[in-house]
């Protein structure tokens, strides 16, 4: 979108309601510098205080402001309006897909985090099964293969953009989704972790990594440029050989 003229407005349509609802349109002043989150905040503060949405840090650290912007899941705080508003000055905002809508732009993230837990997303220290802090620091060489695999996925902040972008989640409500599986692969490669066998069982089968079609929407849309698709491929590969070689117990 070219630099807006003085007095120009954007036509912003927003989902209002829960599972049932409708789009409502607002006229918002176009500014040279504004993010999509700025636009939503303007509407809530100046036009319609009943609008529900979620945000916290505003700088791409917390991952709580993800919404569907013109049909695509994005962090609204890191999406400049000029990148998504077309020449017609229109913008469409909906809540994240594949999650229950609480109201307006706020989704219930509980299923997302429940699946994170179900995939064995919690670090289980090998040396301290009761959760105590181990006495010695573990030495994990940064150049080791497993360390590099773990590092590749560790920066996930759980925003749900990949989950909302995944077709398999839409087709199979039991599917754990890219974020949970990426987390599992990160921990499988963490040499300090002691729950690898249970975690590999948790991510096997139709609800786990084996349903992934490798279409890579998760990788394409991850705002942190992570590659959950590669993590899922790693899980599949490991389960393939572990099963064939009888290493699964």
């Amino acid at each position: 979108m070219p630099t807006p003229e003085r007095g120009a407005t954007l036509e912003v349509s927003i989902w209002r309601g829960g599972a049932e609802g409708a789009m409502r349109t607002y006229q918002v002043p176009a500014r040279e510098n504004q993010t999509v989150l700025d636009i939503v905040t303007y509407i809530q503060r100046e036009l319609d205080p009943s609008l529900a949405y979620r945000f916290a840090c505003r700088v791409g650290m917390c991952g709580s402001c993800a919404m569907t912007v013109n049909g695509r899941a994005r962090w609204t705080c890191r999406t400049h309006a000029s990148r998504v508003v077309g020449p017609d000055g229109k913008l469409e905002l909906r809540p994240l897909a594949n999650l229950p809508v609480i109201r307006d732009l706020a989704t219930d993230m509980a299923p997302f985090f429940d699946k994170w837990a179900k995939a064995g997303g919690r670090f289980q220290p090998k040396d301290a099964k009761d959760g105590a802090v181990p006495e010695e620091f573990a030495v994990v060489p940064p150049t080791s293969k497993q360390r590099r695999e773990a590092d590749a996925g560790i920066e996930c902040i759980g925003c749900g953009v990949c989950y909302a972008s995944c077709d398999v989640v839409a087709w199979n409500p039991d599917y754990l989704g890219p974020a949970a599986l990426n987390r599992a692969w990160t921990l499988v490669n963490d040499v300090r972790d002691g729950a690898r066998a249970e975690r590999m069982e948790a991510v096997a089968g139709d609800a786990g990594c084996h349903s992934c079609h490798s279409t890579q929407s998760c990788t394409e849309r991850c705002p942190k440029q992570l590659d959950p698709s590669a993590s899922i491929a790693g899980l599949k590969r490991k389960l393939f050989w572990d099963t064939l070689l009888g290493r699964r117990g």
Binding site: A204, G205, G208, H210, L239, F240, T243, L244
Partner: peptide, 15 residues
Amino acid sequence: SAARGQVHLWIVQRV
């Protein structure tokens, strides 16, 4: 387990 059977089907399809 059901998941184990599903993994076997997946492996059969790949092989």
